[in-house]
């Protein structure tokens, strides 16, 4: 592990320096910009502030009367409580995002396969799909809330819709680009339609599908945080609003860093998965 990190730094020390200077610039700004006169919180929180006051303050969001004191009921702020609160809300969000992505991917790809099989439907769907893709997703959160309530279900369906449209369009394109020769070769070996679907179409569209996963991961993180931010009363996106309510930039920053870390981890996970699944690619 350490070895891998050292090797990466050796190869990309300029990149590391670039990120470090971003952190340094932030820290300098934190010491130059005054504390907000209104709330008494720093406008740009320093690292010390974030890791100290802000992080331990996250324990305010621990509401269960076990494992750690509950500050809301007069208990002390503890690091254990902060970690528990962060984990609790992170897990909720991770559940929502994965459920949403799975739902969106399965519905999107199934639809694409169906549409690709019926040329008339595909032609009919082109216009509406273009319009739906152009409708700004994040502006539709309030609508989803009215339709499905401020619940887990609503967030999951919202994420699924956001990524599903992308998967649908990507899969349709990928199928249209699928080299005809493979289908013919399979047909000449006596393949049935189901066999062609399973052994030719699905593996052949996987490369394009994987590039769509990167796009949709970004969308999914935006969508899940946005849906939580505006709607339901739990999840890591909601924590931003609780902190924003007191303009507590330190806590907001803590949550931001967590989201960033999760997003990076999911990207890395997909990259590993891709390297394995697409190991046949030239």
């Amino acid at each position: 592990m350490m070895h891998a990190v050292r090797r990466m730094l050796a190869r990309n020390w300029i990149g590391a320096l670039s990120v470090l200077s971003l952190v340094a610039a932030w820290e300098i700004a934190a010491h130059l910009v005054p504390v907000s006169p209104l709330q008494g919180t720093p406008i740009v929180p320093s690292l010390e502030h974030m890791l100290g006051v802000s992080f331990i303050g996250m324990s305010d969001y621990w509401k269960f009367p076990f494992w750690a004191p509950v500050p809301e009921l007069g208990g002390a702020q503890t690091y254990r409580g902060a970690i528990l609160a962060m984990s609790y809300h992170s897990l909720i969000t991770l559940y929502r995002i994965s459920a949403g992505m799975l739902l969106g991917a399965s519905v999107g790809v199934t639809r694409a396969l169906l549409l690709a099989h019926f040329p008339l439907f595909r032609a009919l769907a082109a216009g509406p799909l273009h319009f739906l893709r152009m409708c700004p997703l994040l502006a539709m959160i309030p609508l989803f809330q009215f339709w499905f309530g401020a619940t887990d279900k609503s967030v999951i369906i919202f994420v699924a819709y956001g990524v599903g449209v992308v998967y649908l369009v990507t899969a349709l394109n990928a199928i249209a680009n699928l080299p005809h020769k493979y289908i013919e070769a399979a047909l000449c070996q006596g393949a049935s339609r189901l066999r062609i679907l399973r052994s030719i179409v699905i593996p052949a569209i996987l490369p394009e599908f994987f590039s769509a996963i990167y796009v949709t991961l970004g969308i999914a993180w935006s969508a899940v945080v946005a849906a939580e931010y505006i709607g339901v009363d739990s999840g890591i996106g909601r924590m931003v609003i609780w902190a924003d309510y007191f303009s507590d930039t330190g806590r907001m920053m803590i949550v931001t860093l967590f989201i960033l870390a999760y997003a990076m981890l999911t990207f890395a996970f997909v990259r590993i998965l891709q390297r394995y699944v697409l190991r046949w690619m030239p």
């Binding site: 935006s222 931010y229 931003v240 907001m252 997003a263 990207f267």
Partner: peptide, 11 residues
Amino acid sequence: GTVPILVASPF
């Protein structure tokens, strides 16, 4: 670019 827009905007 990975920071979700709704997290960046309050800042």
